[in-house]
Design a protein around this nucleic acid. Sequence first.
DNA 1: GTATATTAGTTTCAATTGAAACTAATTGCA
DNA 2: TGCAATTAGTTTCAATTGAAACTAATATAC
Lengths: 161, 161
Amino acid sequence: MTKTARKSDVLELEHFLPYRLSHITAIVSAQLAERYAEPFDLSVPEWKVMAVLGRFPDLSANEVGEKTVMDKVTVSRAVTRLSEKSCVRRRLAKDDKRRSVLSLTSKGKAIHREIVPMVLHYERELMESLTVRERDTLSLLIEKLEKRTEMLAANYLLLPS
Amino acid sequence: MTKTARKSDVLELEHFLPYRLSHITAIVSAQLAERYAEPFDLSVPEWKVMAVLGRFPDLSANEVGEKTVMDKVTVSRAVTRLSEKSCVRRRLAKDDKRRSVLSLTSKGKAIHREIVPMVLHYERELMESLTVRERDTLSLLIEKLEKRTEMLAANYLLLPS
DNA sequence: GTATATTAGTTTCAATTGAAACTAATTGCA
DNA sequence: TGCAATTAGTTTCAATTGAAACTAATATAC
């Protein structure tokens, strides 16, 4: 009998992984947003777009959507707004004029450079509750879960009944 | 130099805990909702309310909000809709007529009983990627992070500048 | 005891969301 | 080539959201 064992037909939310993930994530996202949203007048989708473009320049809107798990409408609007604020530049791909090539402007980069240390500081504060070894373990476990969801998605699509 | 080490001013999203949590949670939540939302005509907030009431009967709307990290407006509306569908009963607390006492009706319980095995099955599929020991570790790590966010919330409120 | 402050929950209203329809560009293939 | 199917991204519109205002009940202060 392990800590996580339970009767098969009782949903103990406090031990149910999707519930626990959603709980800790909602709190972490809110605490993080507290630190950048108002100060920099950025919505959560806007910051997500800037964050991925800071890390991976010249993505298409689609690719941004994949990396942030946001749908294309949300991405499109965040990019429009960021472009109005001159934080993101959208060009057209040479080889395919449907596709856009998104990148941070120098203004966007400057804001990105201001926010990054703040969010890293927050992450460091959060991680202080874990040993270095635990951090690596957590990273590994999340990776395993991610791989697993990819498999499940593939399976589920094959059996849509 | 550990796996998670990095330069202090570069945001490598693929190693950034809030990003990774948000990524895996979005996918898990979506895969879970796929399994109950349409089949049972339940929105995500509605299912969350039913799930906590199945586990903790006779909560107030406020308490439901705390347990699900949903704001009171969302809870209020989910409860209204569930009540219209005769899945949840709302009574008034004897000792404080502002407070409601929420519980699943027999119909609500029946639906709950149908969904629970499905979501537990999904969780089991997800967890198959981890050893029993890893499951316990993950549980412990999430708990530590939760505790930590509580501390940070308290601190941040004290220094609102 | 009455007035004020606080708390639980609902309603209103404006902003955000995402599904579906759309535009424009590209690919496939007869 | 040329026409149907697909793909990238945007727009439209109806549904969902949450902040702020509100109602009703309780707690606190004087």
